[in-house]
C-alpha cells in the first residue's frame, strides 16, 4: 500500500492504495464518489471520465498513484457553488440529454473539456469529440443539441419536439 494525496473537487484527500488500484476505484470505493461510473473494461465507453489537472481522462485507464498530487474534478464537483446546475448540466436537463443517466457523468465531463478548448463547436466537432463516450439510450441527438445549447448556440432549428 502506498499513500496518495490529491485534490478532489477542491478538497485535499488522501488514502492508501495498491499499485494496481485504478483512479476510478479510488474515487468510487475509497472516496465514495460514485457519480463516476464504470461501463466497460477496455477504456472505450467514457462513463468514467473525470478531469485531472484540467484535462479529460478516463479514470478507469489511470492508476490512483498516477494522480498523486493532481487536481481532480468529478461530476460531483460540477454544480454551481449554490448547488444549482451549471450551464452544461442545465442544458442537458433542458434538452433531455439523458435518459438512464449512466453515461451522463462522463458525457458532462467530456462536454466541459470540449467547451474549454472549443467554446463554439460545430455539430460535427461535437460528434467527433464524443467518439469515446457511448450512450445507449438517447441516440445522441439531444446530447449533441444540449452541448451546442450550452455553448450559447441557437438550437431552435434542430428538429426536436
Amino acid at each position: 500500500m502506498t499513500k496518495v494525496t490529491m485534490t478532489v473537487n477542491g478538497k485535499s484527500v488522501s488514502g492508501d492504495v495498491e499499485g494496481r488500484t485504478l483512479l476510478s476505484s479510488f474515487l468510487r470505493e475509497d472516496l465514495r464518489l460514485t457519480g463516476t461510473h464504470i461501463g466497460c473494461d477496455t477504456s472505450q465507453c467514457g462513463a468514467c471520465v473525470v478531469h485531472v489537472n484540467g484535462e479529460a481522462v478516463k479514470s478507469c485507464a489511470m492508476f490512483a498513484l498516477e494522480a498523486d498530487g493532481a487536481d481532480v474534478t468529478t461530476i460531483e464537483g460540477q454544480a454551481n457553488a449554490d448547488g444549482s446546475l451549471n450551464t452544461i448540466q442545465q442544458a442537458f436537463q433542458d434538452h433531455h440529454g439523458l435518459q438512464c443517466g449512466f453515461c451522463t457523468p462522463g458525457m458532462v465531463m467530456s462536454a466541459a473539456a470540449l467547451l474549454k478548448d472549443n467554446p463554439k463547436p460545430s455539430e460535427a466537432e461535437i460528434r467527433e469529440y464524443l467518439e469515446g463516450n457511448i450512450c445507449r439510450c438517447t441516440g445522441y441527438h439531444n446530447i449533441v443539441k444540449a452541448i451546442m445549447a450550452a455553448s450559447g448556440q441557437d438550437v431552435s432549428a434542430i428538429a426536436a419536439e
Binding site: 465514495r32 460514485t34 433531455h96
Partner: peptide, 23 residues
C-alpha cells in the same frame, strides 16, 4: 406538457444510486 425531468438533477450531479454504488 414537455415537462423537463425531475430525475435528471440527481443523475447530472452524480447522486444517482445504481446498484453498484451501494456499499
Amino acid at each position: 406538457a414537455a415537462t423537463t425531468r425531475r430525475e435528471d438533477v440527481r443523475f447530472l450531479t452524480g447522486r444517482g444510486q445504481y446498484t453498484d454504488d451501494i456499499q
